[in-house]
Amino acid sequence: MKPTVEQLENLLALKRDERPEEGYWQDFLCEFHQRQREQAAKESGVSALFQRFSQWLSDLGPSKWAYGAGLAYAAVTVAFFLSPKGVDVEKAPAAPVNYQVVPTPAPAVEQLDQLDLSPSTQGSAGEQVF
């Protein structure tokens, strides 16, 4: 058998009376003040600035992404304008070429009109005569 919702609620309501043991809050307060003093000592350093910034970011909620995107955009823009515009690079003088191209004489070509292509003669290439 399942408990009814009312029975369940009554059972859960008993947990309202649960409390930490006696003296807990006195110890808690001592530790709290100790931590606050340590925190205050830390905050005098440079890290405090960063911690506050990150705290501020986390407190922003969902809009932190918009701020983050804006900051990233600004950082990229600043980096773009601050980066060197390009160094003049001297062109290296072209090395003289010591190699001279000597034209070789083209092989003699037998002129077609000087060839005897008449059917009475036998071709020099051994072609058949009909």
Binding site: L14, D17, E21
Partner: peptide, 22 residues
């Protein structure tokens, strides 16, 4: 032991049953 139920200190049997259920 950190959490003390103050409701049923007078009835140990019922407290035991309730503890098991809890």
């Amino acid at each position: 032991p950190a959490l003390v139920d103050h409701t049923h200190e007078a009835n140990p049997e019922q407290q035991t049953r309730l503890k098991e259920l809890q």
